[in-house]
Computed example of a mutant assay.
Amino acid sequence: MSLCEAEKTFILHGVEENFRNDGRERSQYRPMELETNIVAHAFGSARLRLANTDVLVAVKIEVDVPTIDQPSEGKIEFFVDCSANATPDFEGRGGEDLAMEIMNSLTNAYKSTKAFNLSKLCILKGRKCWKLMVDILLLECGGNLYDAVSLAVKAALWHTEIPRVLSVNLDGNNVELEVSEKIHDCIKLDVTSAPIMVTISKIGEHCVVDPSSAEEQCATAAVVVAISQNRFTTILQTGSGSLHPNTLIESLTLGSQIASQLDTALIEVLQQKSGEKPIGFLL
């Protein structure tokens, strides 16, 4: 739903006074709720609600052949589906461009070996490896999709378990794998350094994090940063406007600080014992 000029002015003045229309300050996030292991047939899954933004992630695994230039590494691929029920803008093929942007951003963010070590997915160098297929479904769009998606992806990968390979037999060009049939005989992924995305939007003369859908309409420009262990793995600028160099530096600094806080909070939640009820956490 588009805003009128009076509504945009109200939001802009609120940001100017460091009091947004939902009561937050410029550097505060909306409430989050996280559920894990909710898709029965997935190797790992998570659902994250960031206010009225709702994201579901499921991880599937299959055996594949490593690429020629990376024979000692496995693979990870991202697929994004924008549900038509999430927002009227996704009806027809309206969500394809956004889905492609999110897919490309995640691919670039996870490309660095320091962000996600794909060598742990190698079974036999140059012959066999595990491929992770991360399916992302956008159930509801209430602003700040990049951040919600990255948090849900990291939570799903945290709970992903890879079957243990007991033996590898070579028969000419054929490779036969013996995989443990025990349910709990699995290997967990190390996703401690997996990147977190943070969106910083410029509204008026100030930068805000976690923009709502209404605030996104008021932003002149935005920058999405992916941070892994205090390192930038990708930077994406969105919106039709541009950022002054000083504003860009301010945005990158704020993004790095917020990503560190988000990552710490998420890891603490994931390390807790999983229960029947969803886990909620605030920044």
Rank of each mutant, 00 (worst) to 15 (best):
T87L: 08
S167T: 00
W158G: 00
L124R: 13
V63F: 10
N108M: 14
G92W: 09
A84Y: 04
H159V: 03
L170T: 09
R93Y: 04
S167A: 00
W130S: 04
V63G: 10
S167P: 00
P163K: 04
E77W: 11
E161S: 12
A109F: 10
A148V: 05
G143H: 01
S72D: 15
S119Q: 14
T67V: 14
S105H: 07
L98N: 01
K154T: 07
E101Q: 05
G126C: 04
F78D: 04
I102T: 09
D97V: 02
V80H: 12
V168M: 08
I61H: 07
L151V: 06
A152L: 00
V65C: 14
V80I: 13
L166I: 04
E161P: 03
C129Y: 09
E96Q: 00
C82Q: 06
C122K: 05
E101I: 03
V63I: 14
V59G: 10
K125S: 06
N169D: 11
E73H: 13
G143N: 02
I76E: 08
A152D: 00
R164A: 13
L139F: 06
T87Y: 08
M100C: 03
S167M: 00
N169C: 09
L138E: 02
L139M: 13
D89Y: 13
F79V: 06
